[in-house]
């Protein structure tokens, strides 16, 4: 049975949910707004966590950052699950095309030997770096406060797992499916001198208790060094030498980082603008992790670009980002 009644005859009683009406008035809301605002429980928790008995299940005190409203941490991309998966799903088509192109045109065989070796020893170990970033963003989702930030952190964690998987695919493609390339990459991550400062920094970040500090350490400072170093500087260098393979196979990761920065910078900006204490905390965390990340990136910059000083140049770009976000740098 088709019911055909004009909209004016069936009038809505209200346009949206009360918690949104209280913020914005009774009008239709976007899917993003309905999916994000006030979704996390706020009060009257029944039991203390056995894994952290001095806190409530969801507790704003797991960071020293303070906010009047934790839902100020909006995502400029307005990702809710559906928008996120549809966007990422669409991006996979061009990734597939790139992988197919590389195979079809025999770009692996055409690659210079030294670049191929460099990718295997100095890009493939980033699988583990991305895994660390995946763990850290799961941690931010677990211990963070407010769906606005925690949901985006979980999408971010998924992206990191995706990055690690593309690096894996690249290694397998480069070696004709030889798992030894992955073992070698793991070996370099564990033992190669150039990687040790970064691995140490990653392990230190895994034990950071304050989740907002962790956000700064991982998503701003470490990523702000590592991603431009490998997926911009090194990629450009190889491309300029005629080896476009790295650029093609990590195009997703490079695009992703450009997108992700907008989100990460916005979170810093929002927290810093909230009050001077936040700004001081964030500036301090940034200074600390920035310096550590620069030191960790130096041997890698030396190895892949032949210029350890490039780490400072990359950090200067990042400093500019953070200044723009309102930090004292």
């Amino acid at each position: 049975m088709q019911i055909d009644i004009k909209a004016r005859e069936i009038k809505p009683v209200r346009q949206t949910y009360t918690h949104l009406k209280e913020r914005f008035g009774d009008k239709p809301m976007s899917r993003y707004q309905e999916a994000i605002y006030d979704v996390q429980a706020r009060e009257n928790f029944h039991y203390r966590p056995t894994w952290e008995p001095d806190r409530e299940l969801f507790d704003p005190a797991r960071t020293r950052i303070t906010m009047g409203d934790w839902y100020k941490f909006l995502d400029p991309r307005q990702y809710y699950y559906g928008a996120y998966c549809i966007t990422r799903g669409r991006q996979q088509d061009s990734v597939e095309q790139n992988f197919r192109f590389v195979e079809k045109r025999g770009l692996v065989a055409a690659m210079r030997d030294e670049n191929r070796a460099l990718v295997l020893t100095h890009v493939v170990p980033l699988r583990h770096y991305e895994w660390g970033a995946y763990l850290n963003n799961n941690q931010i989702c677990h211990r963070g406060y407010g769906t606005a930030l925690t949901a985006a952190a979980q999408f971010h964690a998924a992206d990191r797992l995706g990055n690690a998987q593309y690096l894996t695919r690249m290694a397998l493609l480069l070696t004709g499916n030889d798992p030894a390339a992955l073992e070698a990459g793991h070996g370099a991550w564990m033992d190669n001198d150039a990687w040790q400062p970064l691995r140490r920094l990653m392990e230190d970040s895994l034990v950071v208790e304050d989740w907002f500090e962790l956000f700064v350490a991982q998503n701003i400072a470490m990523d702000g060094l590592v991603h431009p170093l490998f997926f911009d500087r090194l990629e450009k260098k190889m491309t300029s030498q005629g080896d476009a393979l790295l650029a093609m196979l990590t195009e997703f990761t490079a695009e992703w980082f450009a997108e992700e920065k907008r989100w990460a910078d916005r979170q810093i900006q929002v927290a810093a603008a909230e009050n001077p204490e936040n700004k001081a905390l964030l500036s301090g965390w940034y200074g600390k992790w920035r310096d550590l990340a620069v030191e960790a990136a130096k041997p890698l910059a030396g190895a892949v670009l032949g210029d350890a000083g490039e780490a400072e140049a990359i950090a200067a770009d990042m400093d500019a980002r953070m200044r723009k976000a309102g930090l004292e740098v």
Binding site: P12, V13, R14, Y17, T18, H19, E34, A41, G82
Partner: peptide, 26 residues
């Protein structure tokens, strides 16, 4: 998270026409 958000979106239409949905988080 998908289930949370798709449920909120699916039932958003009902919230416009029926009582008893509007303040579910509180």
């Amino acid at each position: 998270l998908r289930h949370t958000q798709t449920q909120i979106h699916t039932l958003s239409h009902y919230n416009k026409y029926f009582d008893g949905f509007h303040d579910f988080t509180r």
